[in-house]
């Protein structure tokens, strides 16, 4: 391993290492980031939720959006899987159904970036207990 010879070396090294613990630091303060929950019950997984989750993780990072993506159990909308819940900081969560990679891309571009609602919203019939 190269030696750290100056403060700038250390700073560069920190930046390259940051991503290793980013996930943990964001978890410490989830409220200030975009929070996305992907329903990952059997129904969700069978309909491709895992691909969508990976897609979103990659794309959000590529597009420089600070976000916390977690997986959750069945939300009860098995007819519309894969489903995801998106909560923008300070806003009520919104659930989207039938999310494939294309839809996910649209959600990121329109809703997450600009707050514009897109097709496929499922009216929520539950409340999250904090």
């Amino acid at each position: 391993m190269a030696k750290i010879k100056s403060l700038d070396d250390l700073r560069m090294m920190k930046e390259s290492l940051q991503s290793k613990i980013n996930l943990r630091e964001k978890g410490e303060d989830p409220g200030s980031h975009v929070q996305i929950k992907v329903a990952m019950a059997t129904c969700g997984i069978a309909s491709g939720a895992k691909t969508v989750m990976e897609f979103m993780m990659e794309e959000l990072e590529k597009r420089g959006i600070e976000s916390v993506i977690t997986q959750t159990g069945c939300m009860g909308y098995c007819f519309a899987e894969p489903t995801i819940e998106v909560k923008l900081p300070g806003k009520e969560p919104v659930v989207f159904g039938y999310v494939d990679n294309k839809k996910a891309d649209e959600i990121i571009e329109k809703y997450i970036k600009n707050g514009e609602l897109v097709d496929g919203i499922i009216p929520m019939n539950y409340e999250t207990i904090e």
Binding site: L10, M13, K14, L17
Partner: peptide, 15 residues
């Protein structure tokens, strides 16, 4: 040590 550096470790002594 990498995880410590990622948490601003050794930045204080550097500064």
């Amino acid at each position: 040590i990498d995880e410590y550096i990622a948490r601003d470790g050794y930045y204080a002594i550097g500064k």
